[in-house]
């Protein structure tokens, strides 16, 4: 994350110039412009029109059901009514809360499982390569098929209950997907299954990057594994932990594919996340002005959060440097 301050805030450029001296000795070079131009164009391409259009129709009650084409949406001008409705929509808050709940539960579990697995794989042992590859397989499975398989696994007469019955010694017949709480649990379990491998992969990369001499030295000095972890490994991989957590949080906020195929947001709205909510009101209720307002509200909120996160990371970095 060290790069953030180089770029996001020119304030930090004092330290930057020192390290980049030779490149900058030639002054600003056109090559930099050419190299970044395609990305700028793509961002502008995907952001400009959609955002302007969303901004426009979010101020109207436009829906395709009115027979009015979107450029004429002003005929249905409603001012800020959509935003007001949004702030008063329990279903929206419910979906938001559920999304955060899934994040709050799934991300830490994925993180600790991934970290534990990564620690197990730090040193060499027979057949390590094989185990390591096999453990990465879940994230290579197309989420759609994972959704169908989990739907079957979680049937009341299905394999998961059969395994539980075996383990507990009594007959288990839980209706996972028909119970609002358990359906949410099932969705979280499927996400943990699919994405713990990514956590594992990233954290293992971090752990293996720690110089082995330091670990050896600590062992010779009689440090326990726990002490070695706390004093040597943890500080070294802190940054990578933040990255791993950030990636999963960002991706989980949009959770849709597996979940939608497993439960379609049901039963009722028990597993309706933000993405499922948007999908449903976009494709069924067709209140597109409302969807636009929702989109902009989310974009605004997320931008503030992302901006703040970058700002704080950068400040911390500067403190460390100072």
């Amino acid at each position: 994350m060290s790069n953030v301050d180089d770029t996001a805030k020119p304030v930090a450029s004092g330290t930057v110039e020192k390290t980049d001296s030779h490149f900058h000795a030639y002054g600003k070079n056109r090559l930099g412009l050419y190299l970044t131009l395609p990305a700028q164009i793509l961002v502008l391409f995907i952001a400009l029109f959609p955002l302007l259009m969303q901004l426009y129709i979010s101020l109207t009650d436009w829906t395709p059901l009115t027979g009015v084409r979107w450029p004429q949406a002003y005929q249905l001008w409603s001012g800020l009514a959509n935003y007001a409705d949004l702030l008063d929509d329990d279903r929206f808050y419910g979906a938001l809360w559920r999304t955060f709940f899934i994040i709050i539960v799934a991300v830490p579990i994925e993180f600790f499982l991934g970290l534990a697995m990564a620690l197990l794989f730090m040193d060499e042992f027979p057949a390590k390569r094989l185990f390591y590859s096999a453990l990465l397989v879940p994230m290579m499975i197309v989420p759609a098929v994972a959704g169908y398989m989990f739907f079957l696994l979680f049937q009341s007469g299905g394999p998961i209950n059969q395994l539980l019955s075996l383990a507990l010694g009594t007959k288990v017949a839980i209706s996972w997907l028909s119970d609002p709480d358990l359906a949410l649990a099932a969705v979280i379990i499927s996400d943990i299954w699919q994405w713990t491998p990514l956590m594992f992969l990233i954290l293992l990369a971090g752990l293996l990057g720690v110089p082995s001499e330091q670990l050896k030295a600590a062992t010779l000095l009689g440090a326990s594994p726990w002490q070695r972890f706390l004093t040597i490994l943890l500080p070294k991989i802190k940054a990578i932990m933040v990255i791993a957590l950030a990636i999963r949080t960002i991706e989980l906020f949009k959770i849709f594919d597996t979940l939608y195929i497993m439960t379609a947001g049901g039963p009722g709205v028990a597993t309706e996340t933000i993405s499922v909510f948007i999908f449903k009101i976009t494709t069924q209720e067709l209140v597109w002005g409302y969807v636009a307002a929702l989109a902009l509200l989310i974009l605004f909120t997320l931008s503030v959060i992302a901006g703040l996160a970058m700002y704080f990371l950068q400040r911390k970095k500067r403190e460390v440097a100072a």
Binding site: F23, Q54, M310
Partner: peptide, 24 residues
């Protein structure tokens, strides 16, 4: 070359944003 200083944040926003919300 220090070009494109807006990109890190812009691209994070792009990834954060549920694609569904701008699907129309």
């Amino acid at each position: 070359y220090n070009y494109g200083k807006n990109l890190p944040l812009a691209l994070i926003q792009l990834r954060l944003f549920p694609p569904l919300a701008v699907m129309i």
